[in-house]
Each structure stands twice: as structure tokens, then as C-alpha cells.
């Protein structure tokens, strides 16, 4: 009888600790994931333009459930090298940017409806870089940049360009590839 009681207590303890293990595993798993998007797009860190990760048509991509009508391109950023400027010329096709960090998920998204005179331009920076940029700014001529504060220094931008018809797919792919993303020299320097 006494053994059964002790066994029961041990089982209960095990269940309680199991809940803790489960929670820790779920919370920690994004930090340990290597096959996540952040890990896979690190090769785009040095490129000056966004690199296609899923061409329209949806073939040959690691992205799960790709939409064949959409070209998806990515560029990774590391704000320790300075703020990052993402710029695209908008056209007839739907274009959108989404900004992600490794573990924090998405922190900002914008579509070409926010474009000014056919250009969509966003500068991602850390809170500190934003302070520096403001301090360095000419008060009479404030910057017109759209500045977004990133919660982490490392992350990536996803560019999506949608092709309403199959014949527009090559054009969507070109538009996604043409998006420039580079460390912003003006502010960093």
C-alpha cells in the first residue's frame, strides 16, 4: 500500500514537471530551430537586392504551401551594420513587405498602397539608431524616411509580389528581385 502511494506521488510529480518541460520546450524551440526561415535566408545577408525564395508557380521551394500566384523574395538584415533601407518601385502588381525577427515573429508589414510617388521605402533600425538619426538631423529639413524600430538586431524582410494571371508571373518575379535592401550608409556613417 505504501509503495503504491509513493508511486502515485512520483507519477504526479512527473506530470507536473512534464507541464514545465512542455512549456520550456515550446518557448525555446524557435531559438533552436535551424531550418526556420531566418536560418535559411542568412545567405542573403550580403546581397544588395532581395533574393527569390519562392518563384511564382510554387515549384522548387522550401516554403510550405507556396502560392503559385506569388513571388516571394527575402533579404536578411543585421542592424549591427547600421540601419537597413528597403526600397521598391511599385507598379500594377500587388507588392508587400513584412519585417520579421528570428524569435519575435513579424513586427511590421506594409503594402504598396503606402507607396509615395511609385516608391515604397522603409528604413528599419534599432531604437538607438533612431535616436542617433534624430540627433544628427537638420531641424529645418527633417528626414522623410519611414523609420521602423526593430525589436531585435537580426531579422529578415519578406517581399511578396502577386501576379493576378500566369502571364504576369515573370514580371512579378522581376519586381521581387529588383527590391533593394542594403545597409543605410547615410545614417550609419
Amino acid at each position: 500500500m505504501r509503495n503504491r502511494g509513493r508511486f502515485l506521488i512520483a507519477t504526479l510529480c512527473g506530470l507536473v514537471i512534464a507541464v514545465g518541460v512542455h512549456i520550456v520546450a515550446i518557448l525555446a524551440s524557435p531559438s533552436f530551430a535551424e531550418q526556420d526561415t531566418f536560418g535559411r535566408v542568412q545567405s542573403t545577408l550580403t546581397a544588395d537586392t532581395a533574393q527569390i525564395i519562392s518563384a511564382p508557380g510554387g515549384q522548387n521551394t522550401w516554403l510550405p504551401l507556396p502560392d503559385p500566384a506569388v513571388a516571394v523574395a527575402a533579404c536578411a538584415f543585421d542592424l549591427r551594420d547600421g540601419p537597413m533601407r528597403v526600397a521598391a518601385k511599385t507598379g500594377a502588381l500587388i507588392l508587400s513587405f513584412s519585417f520579421h525577427t528570428k524569435t519575435g515573429g513579424v513586427f511590421f508589414a506594409v503594402t504598396d498602397r503606402a507607396a509615395v510617388r511609385g516608391e515604397l521605402e522603409i528604413v528599419a533600425m534599432t531604437a538607438r539608431q533612431l535616436d542617433e538619426a534624430r540627433a544628427a538631423e537638420d531641424e529645418n529639413e527633417p528626414s522623410r524616411d519611414v523609420r521602423i524600430v526593430a525589436p531585435e538586431q537580426q531579422g529578415f524582410v519578406i517581399v511578396r509580389v502577386a501576379a493576378p494571371t500566369a502571364s504576369l508571373r515573370p514580371q512579378a518575379e522581376e519586381a521581387a528581385k529588383a527590391v533593394s535592401c542594403a545597409a543605410d550608409q547615410d545614417v550609419a556613417g
Binding site: I26, T37, R40, S96, G105, V106, F108, A109
Partner: peptide, 23 residues
């Protein structure tokens, strides 16, 4: 950004980039 820890873990596991709320 309000995705719960399960969503974040599953997105990382799948290697997915879900459409952002604004997109």
C-alpha cells in the same frame, strides 16, 4: 506580433512565413 508561443514555435518548425496581418 501577438502570435502565441505555439504559433511561433510551429512557424519556426515549418520554416513558414505566414501572411502578415497588413498583407
Amino acid at each position: 506580433p501577438e502570435a502565441d508561443p505555439y504559433m511561433r514555435a510551429i512557424i519556426a518548425r515549418r520554416g513558414d512565413v505566414p501572411l502578415a496581418t497588413g498583407e
